Simulated assay, not measured.
Amino acid sequence: MKTAIIVPARYASSRYPGKPLAELRLPDGSRKSLIRMSWEAACRVPGVDGVFVATDDDRIKDAAEGFGADVIMTDSACENGTARCADALARAGIAPEIVVNLQGDAPLTPPDFVSALIEVLRADPEVQVATPILKCDRAKYDGLIADRKNGLVGATTAVPDHHGDALYFSKEVIPWLPADVAASDDIPVFHHVGVYAYRPAALAAYQGWRVSQLEVLEGLEQLRFLANGMKVRCVEVAGQGRQFWELNNPGDVARIEAALEAG
């Protein structure tokens, strides 16, 4: 197995308990659970050898097996999706060259975003972790700012260096912009799309590190890599007019349904 996608899902979300089983309305009026839509998004990625749902909850396990997913039961102590992917890899006894974490709250993730990460790891053996970033257009930037003004914590922003490696990730909208730049059409803010590709060695290292203070403060698992000196390659992808909202808060259901309706 060269490439595997793992879809981590937990029931006990602090901001949205039971989130993976939340149902979204599709354009045809039918409804599907968030975990099913995320699994289907993973299945659309070409050239992948296996797709697995990783969870510690029997309700999610039963739902996922009901729509045909392969499920790996993981430790309930896994504190985030990266840790759950590492645990799933060890428990399943599989040894892919590349592991993709397509989080169970990201059903709008296009296959080409995931393919771009896989291609970067295949092309450069020095890259241990890769994740997509998307330059904000006006609508996205204004939405991020509005959320923060309303006290909502959701989408993440990323600041890459000149080589494409992450300097930092934050739940705040960074970098801070002067008023004239914030009002321009060229907004130098990158939305971080919550998908990761790792080499198994990076996952093993992650499991051996203690939880970092930045990771706790921001609630962002990828900061453990940066805190321990491991680079995270930011791969810029093209939005092509598509909106990418993860389901972080109950109010995001309407945003995702609107994006699905818009096609």
Rank of each mutant, 00 (worst) to 15 (best):
A4I: 15
I6Y: 02
P8D: 00
Y11P: 00
R15K: 12
K19G: 10
P20E: 02
P20A: 07
L21Y: 05
A22C: 07
L24E: 03
R25Y: 00
P27S: 01
D28I: 01
R31D: 06
K32E: 11
K32Y: 04
I35P: 02
R36I: 07
W39V: 12
E40N: 06
A41H: 02
A41N: 06
R44L: 08
R44N: 12
V45S: 00
P46Q: 09
P46K: 11
V48E: 07
D49T: 06
G50T: 11
V51F: 01
V53I: 15
A54G: 00
D56I: 04
D56T: 09
D57G: 00
R59L: 11
R59Q: 10
I60D: 00
A64E: 05
G66H: 01
G68E: 05
G68F: 03
A69F: 02
D70F: 10
V71W: 00
I72F: 06
M73D: 05
S76L: 13
N80K: 01
T82V: 15
C85A: 09
C85P: 10
L89Y: 03
R91T: 01
R91D: 01
G93Q: 05
A95C: 12
A95W: 07
P96S: 02
I98T: 13
V99W: 06
L102G: 02
A106V: 13
P107K: 02
P107M: 05
L108C: 01
P110I: 09
V114E: 07
V114K: 00
A116S: 15
A123P: 02
P125I: 08
P125T: 10
V127G: 08
V127E: 07
V127D: 02
Q128W: 04
I133F: 08
K135Y: 08
D137G: 13
R138C: 06
R138E: 11
A139C: 03
Y141E: 05
I145M: 15
A146P: 04
R148W: 04
K149D: 14
K149M: 13
G151R: 03
V153R: 15
A155T: 04
T157V: 02
T157S: 11
T157D: 01
A158C: 15
D161S: 00
H163Y: 14
A166Y: 10
A166W: 12
A166F: 12
E172M: 09
I174F: 12
I174T: 11
I174Q: 13
L177F: 08
D180S: 13
D180R: 15
D180C: 13
A182D: 02
P188Q: 01
H192C: 10
H192K: 10
H192E: 09
V193H: 15
V195R: 05
A197L: 06
R199M: 08
R199W: 05
P200M: 08
A204N: 11
W209C: 10
W209P: 04
V211C: 15
V211N: 13
S212Q: 04
L214V: 12
L214M: 13
V216Q: 12
V216T: 14
L220N: 11
L220T: 11
Q222K: 10
N228Y: 12
N228A: 06
M230T: 15
K231M: 11
V232L: 08
E236W: 03
E236K: 10
V237N: 05
A238W: 06
G239Q: 07
Q240E: 14
Q240Y: 14
Q243W: 14
F244S: 10
E246D: 12
N249T: 10
D252G: 09
D252L: 05
A254E: 15
E257K: 00
E257N: 03
A258H: 08
E261F: 09
A262M: 07
G263S: 08
